[in-house]
Design a protein around this nucleic acid. Structure first.
Lengths: 194, 194
DNA sequence: GTCTATACGTCGATAGAC
DNA sequence: GTCTATCGACGTATAGAC
C-alpha cells in the first residue's frame, strides 16, 4: 500500500500539464480550470495536491534553475580545457531544453510572474549562474584559448543563442541533439565565416 | 488650433507607458488601471484614445514587426557582400532594440497574447522575415562567404543571440551601440576562439 | 480525494454627468 | 475628453457534502 505515491504522481501531472499550458498561453493566459481540464479533474480538486497557482509556477521555475546550476558547477570543477568546458555547457543547455522543453520555456519567460519574494530569489540564482559561466569565459580568455573581448557581451550572446531551441526544436525535426550541439559549438567557437 | 494633435500625443503616451509596463510585468500582469496611473488619467478615460487593451498590444507588436521587415528588405536589395549584409542586419537589430527597447521586448515576448486572428497575422509576418533573412545566409553559403551548415540553425542562433540586448542594455552601460555591433559581429562571424 | 456550489476580488469595458 | 459609478464576466480559492 503506497498512498503517498498517488499524490506525488497527480502533483507531477499537474506540473507537467501546467508547464505545457504556460508555455503556449503564458502564465496570465492560463486558468486553473484550463489546467484541471488537462489533468482530468475539477479545479477545486487540484488544491488537494498544490497550494496555489503561484506555487505551481515556483515549482517549475526552481526545478529548472536547480538543474542548470547543479550541472554547471559539475562542469566548472573539472580539469578540461576551457573550450571543452564551453562545449559541455552548450550540451547541458541543449539536453535540458530537449528533455524538458515546456518547463525550460516557462522558467525563461514566465519567471516575472513569480511573487516578489520568489522573483528576487530566482533572479539571484540566475545571477549566480551567470557569474560562474562568465568565470569560465574570463579564464578562457586569460589562458589564450578565447579572444579577449567584453565578457558580458560574450556571455549573453552565448546564453541567448542557446534559447531559440526552446522555440524551434520538436522531436520531429530531422536533426539530432548531437548534430545540434556540433553546429552550435561550431558557430559560437568559430563563427559562420569560412 | 490643432485639436487632433492632443489626441495623437495622448494615444502615443498610452502606448509608451503600456510598453514599459508590459515589458516589466507582462501583458497578463498589467491592468488598464496600471497604465492609466502612469499616463495620469483614469482607466475609463483611456477609452477615448484606444479601443481596447488588445488594441494597445496590437499597435505595439505590429509597429515593431513593420520596422524590422521594412529595414530588412532595404538591406536585402543592396549589392553589398553577404558578410556586409549580415553586419547591417545585426546593426538594425541592435539599433531598434536600443531605440525602442520596451516595445521590442513586448513584441518578442507578449505576441502570444494577441487575439487569434492578429496572432496568426503576426506569426506570418515573422515567418516571412525569417525567410528573407535565411535567404541571405543561404546565398552567403553558396557564394563561399559562409560555412555550409544547417540554415535554420544558423538563422535562429543569430536571431536569438541578438535578443539578449533587450534584457541587458541600459543607456548607463559603458559600451556604445557601435562597440556592441563590433563585438557581436565578431562573435557571430568569427567565433570566440582565437 | 473529488465533487458542487459559491465566496470574493479584480478585470476590461460602458453609461452618463459635467 | 475626463470623471465617478458600476456592470458583468471571469479569476483564484474555499466550504462542505459525499
Amino acid at each position: 500500500m503506497v498512498p503517498l505515491r498517488t499524490k506525488v504522481n497527480k502533483r507531477e501531472l499537474i506540473l507537467t500539464e501546467a508547464s505545457k499550458l504556460f508555455k503556449d498561453r503564458g502564465f496570465g493566459g492560463t486558468g486553473m480550470r484550463d489546467i484541471a481540464e488537462k489533468v482530468g479533474m475539477e479545479a477545486a480538486s487540484m488544491y488537494n495536491h498544490i497550494k496555489s497557482k503561484d506555487e505551481i509556477l515556483e515549482l517549475i521555475c526552481f526545478k529548472i534553475a536547480d538543474a542548470y546550476t547543479t550541472q554547471l558547477s559539475e562542469i566548472a570543477n573539472t580539469e578540461a580545457s576551457f573550450q571543452d568546458k564551453l562545449k559541455q555547457i552548450i550540451k547541458v543547455h541543449i539536453d535540458l531544453m530537449i528533455h524538458d522543453a515546456a518547463a525550460v520555456s516557462v522558467a525563461n519567460n514566465d519567471w516575472k510572474y513569480l511573487r516578489d519574494e520568489k522573483k528576487e530569489e530566482y533572479k539571484s540564482i540566475r545571477k549566480s549562474y551567470e557569474r560562474s559561466f562568465a568565470f569560465v569565459l574570463e579564464e578562457g580568455m586569460k589562458s589564450g584559448e578565447f579572444k579577449t573581448m567584453n565578457v558580458s557581451v560574450a556571455l549573453f550572446t552565448i546564453l541567448s543563442s542557446l534559447r531559440w531551441i526552446e522555440l524551434w526544436y520538436k522531436p520531429s525535426r530531422d536533426i539530432s541533439a548531437e548534430e545540434l550541439e556540433e553546429e552550435l559549438s561550431t558557430i559560437l567557437l568559430n563563427g559562420i565565416n569560412i
